[in-house]
Design a protein around this nucleic acid. Structure first.
Lengths: 153, 153
DNA sequence: AAAAATTCAATTGTACACAATTGAATTTTG
DNA sequence: CAAAATTCAATTGTGTACAATTGAATTTTT
């Protein structure tokens, strides 16, 4: 007899239906898995990502770091000050353009790389995933992020 | 002639190789995509997820909310106080067990649901993904999170 | 070249995340 | 039943995220 119940639509808003929540939860779970491994290096997860960039390419500006990590100076400036405090990087204005601040690894920062090399394999083991599946998922996520970011400009 | 270059291993640590970074970046990108939509509801993204749980099941404890969202009281208590401040929920100790705090929707909190119903479709459009692909990716991420969380106990 | 616009990092302010501790309420044990 | 252990939310403290503003340095326009 189909009476007029206000009919709030059914499962569209169920938490476990949401891709966004699965993404949010997975991201935090993976970060949490890194935490004990990074503890021995005295790095937080975002600090670790920052070091990855620097090990790849030393002497980048805050701006370039922000571009790679998709983070702004409001996040990076205090994070980099902590890395400097820990003796891992130096921060110096570029003489060629005094607006830019160049981040450089100290010897201690360079040496930390060796201790970090075992981490990705450690995590991969925790995830129990085939390397192929990991690459596929990684690429899918990159695709997703790229699509989302491209649409809002 | 293979001289002894210290041989820091090659690409294991490249940022763009990391599944974890793809996940971290995608999660933040998707959250950023929600932000303008949630602004009209005066909700942050974690507040929106909290409301999803409450719309699904009103009158839950902080503990139960934490279980669903994988967040602890350190995160939830101030978040819920803000939702209370905004007039969307009430927080009251349970008489049956005074340790527990029950979160209930106010009429305004219940009414907000209608405004939220268009959001998932909006986002889906932004992602340019087939519903099937979204479900598959969501399930893969849930699997990933479950595996990571199960290994650390 | 002087004025206007832009770029860059830093700062300020709000809101998560999360480890660790606290203290009240309840349950389990001896 | 009383003591010990556990559970729960709140609190404290650190470290991101990110919007918005600031102020100095550089580039572009007049």
């Amino acid at each position: 007899m189909k009476t007029a119940k206000p009919s709030t639509s059914p499962d569209i808003l169920l938490l476990d239906q949401q891709l966004c929540f699965a993404l949010y939860a997975a991201s935090r779970a993976v970060t949490a898995a890194y935490r004990p491994l990074l503890e021995s290096l005295d790095l937080t997860y975002p600090q670790y990502l920052t070091m990855l960039v620097l090990w790849e390419q030393d002497g980048v500006t805050v701006r370039e770091l922000g571009r790679r990590l998709q983070l702004d100076s409001g996040t990076l400036t205090p994070l980099l000050k902590r890395l400097q405090q820990a003796g891992l990087v130096s921060r110096e204005r570029r003489s060629s353009d005094e607006r830019e601040v160049e981040i450089r690894l100290t010897p201690a920062g360079r040496e930390l790389r060796a201790s970090a090399e075992s981490i990705p394999a450690c995590l991969a083991a925790r995830l129990c995933m085939e390397p192929d599946d990991m690459r596929r998922l990684r690429d899918e996520l990159r695709e997703l992020a790229a699509r989302v970011l491209s649409t809002d400009a």
